[in-house]
């Protein structure tokens, strides 16, 4: 029993970098959803691609400058996706917007696979290569760094939304585009800002996660899917909810493999999370018809 408990604790500690990365991804997903009413399926690629850029630049300019450049590139990528794809397709349909983000995802994965190949690569570390013993496992300083950075960033954004004019403007134009533009807020500007923040966060998460795990065009991109589950858990429009959701999802990923024979299976955490996501969706989803009706009264 005691060994089981210590296994659980060790696993939880080992998943802290994942929690950090999910938090940053989930925050970006929420920003974008609030600003554009789009689920950005390209989010994974917006994390993966800067991670590869970091890998490519680190040799030339050193780890820290490369990390900064890659994160900035991620922000630019967010803005480009919004400008070139999502905004142009707004007039077509929401489906077209979703398919557009899917296309960006595919495009970046294909590009990364072509340039860097599909064999996993290991990127240089951002944080010093120090590791601590946790039970039978090693915890890298980079993992702790990822977790701490994500908490700082999340706190910063929550404060930004809560306490600044900019945050208020972003919340207002997310709620009602027309009304807030009548109030003198430029909704296009706040939308671009949301994508910029989301891109920076995705890139930061991608670079740090890539540095503490491996680089792979698909696998790194798909690391964003648990963040979608986390954002769903939090209610999709709720910044704090996204943070809580990321903790729940991270804990699930950490605990499931300790749950005996079944949990040790490859893919068991993914199965558990998929089931969790489906249950949440079934509970949260609007009754099919009622969503369309004027709410009466």
């Amino acid at each position: 029993m005691l060994s089981f408990l210590s296994d659980v604790v060790v696993n939880i500690v080992l998943t802290t970098p994942l929690v950090g990365a999910y938090t940053m991804f989930a925050l970006g997903i929420v920003f974008i959803y609030r600003a554009s009413k789009v689920l950005n399926l390209a989010h994974g690629a917006m994390a993966m691609f800067p991670a590869y850029l970091f890998f490519a630049l680190a040799g030339a300019v050193g780890a820290y400058p490369a990390a900064v450049l890659a994160v900035l590139a991620g922000g630019a990528l967010g803005v480009i996706v919004e400008r070139v794809v999502v905004r142009r397709l707004r007039s077509v349909s929401p489906t077209a917007q979703v398919v557009g983000t899917v296309a960006v995802l595919g495009l970046l994965i294909a590009l990364a696979a072509r340039v860097w190949g599909t064999t996993p690569l290991s990127a240089p570390s951002v944080f010093p290569e120090v590791s601590y013993r946790v039970g039978d496992a090693q915890l890298q300083l980079g993992s702790i760094g990822l977790f701490v950075v994500s908490l700082l960033v999340a706190g910063g954004f929550i404060a930004l939304f809560r306490f600044t004019d900019l945050g208020l403007a972003m919340r207002a134009s997310a709620d009602n585009r027309t009304a807030s533009s009548l109030m003198g807020i430029d909704p296009d500007r706040t939308t671009v800002l949301a994508w910029l923040f989301a891109g920076l966060l995705a890139a930061l998460g991608g670079v740090l996660l890539g540095a503490s795990t491996n680089l792979h065009p698909f696998i790194l991109s798909l690391q964003v899917l648990p963040a979608f589950v986390a954002a769903l858990l939090g209610g999709l429009e709720n910044v704090k909810g996204a943070v809580y959701g990321s903790f729940v999802v991270g804990l699930a990923v950490g605990i499931v493999p300790t749950l005996g024979h079944w949990g040790e299976r490859v893919g068991a955490p993914q199965l558990a999370l998929a089931v969790l996501a489906f249950v949440i969706m079934s509970l949260r989803g609007a009754k099919v018809v009622a969503g369309d009706v004027r709410s009466g009264l």
Binding site: K37, V38, L39, L41, P94, T95, V98, L225, F228, V229, L232, L273, A274, A277, F278, M281, S282, R284, G285, A286, V288, G291
Partner: peptide
């Protein structure tokens, strides 16, 4: 049956 549109897209993605 329970979710539509964007949510369904994510559900199928998770699947």
């Amino acid at each position: 049956l329970r979710v539509r549109g964007l949510y369904l897209a994510v559900a199928t993605l998770i699947f």
